[in-house]
Amino acid sequence: MARIIVVTSGKGGVGKTTTSAAVSMGLAKKGHKTAVIDFDVGLRNLDLIMGCERRVVYDFVNVINGEATLNQALIRDKHCDNLYILPASQTRDKDSLSLEGVGKILDELSKTFDYIVCDSPAGIEKGAHLAMYFADDAFVVTNPEVSSVRDSDRMLGLLASKSRRAELNEEPIKEYLILSRYSPDRVKLGEMLSVNDVQEILSLHLLGVTPESKSVLNASNSGTPVILDEKSDAGQAYADIVARYLGEEKPHRFIDEKKGLFGKLFGGK
C-alpha cells in the first residue's frame, strides 16, 4: 500500500511543483519506489521541472479515459530508477479529471509504489480538491507572506472537511508545514514573518524551511530537481525535509541569517 502525499497551498506560485519534484526525487533516492503526479491539468509544468518534457507521450487524462495504460503513460526518471512521473494533459481542461477516475489510478499505483506524490494546482477548485481528496499526508507549502498564510489556513479547513478521510470519518490527513522562500535577513529586519510567527498562526508541524535561493531557478532551467544539487542550500533543505518525513531527526537549518561583516561587527552573538 502506497502512502499518498499531496503538495498543496491554495495560493499559486509558492513552490508546490518545486517541492513535489524535490520530495519525490528525495524519496526515490532513499530507495522508495515513488510516483509523482501532475494534477495541474491544462498547465502542466512538472514535466519541465523534472526534465522529461520531451518524453511525454500519454498523460493522466489519457489513462483516465482508457486511451492509454498506466504503464504507457508513466515516465521513468532519467536520474533515478525508483522514480516515475505521470504528466498532466496540456490540451484538456480540469473537468477531464473525475473523482472516480483519479481514485482508480491511485488504487492501481498503490499496488506497486511506496509513495505517490500529488502536485496540486493552485486554488481551491476542482483540480486542487481532486489532488488532496485521497491523501494520507499533506505538505502545505507556505510563503512567509500574509495571503499565502491565509490561503494555507483555508486549505487546512478543506483537508479537514472535504477529503476522503474526513468523509469516511477515518483518521484525519497528517498535515505538515513547508515554509518556502524564507529570507532570514529580512526576518531579522522585521520585514518578513518568521518561522515562529507562521507556526503560531497555523499551528502545524514544521517539516522544514527552504531558503529563497538562486539554485531553484538554476535547477528548473536545466530540468533537474533542486535536491540533486547537493551543494545548494535549497537542495540541502529539501534533503532534510525528506529525511524528517521519513522519521530522521534533523535540526532545522536556514532559519538564521548569514552574517555579513557588518552583522558580525554589530549584530552580537
Partner: peptide, 20 residues
C-alpha cells in the same frame, strides 16, 4: 522602525481566528 512583520502577524492572527 515599526516592524511590518509584526503588523502582518497581528492581522493574520485576527483574520485566521475569525475564518476558523
Amino acid at each position: 522602525k515599526i516592524s511590518t512583520a509584526a503588523v502582518a502577524k497581528e492581522r493574520l492572527q485576527i483574520l485566521v481566528a475569525h475564518e476558523r
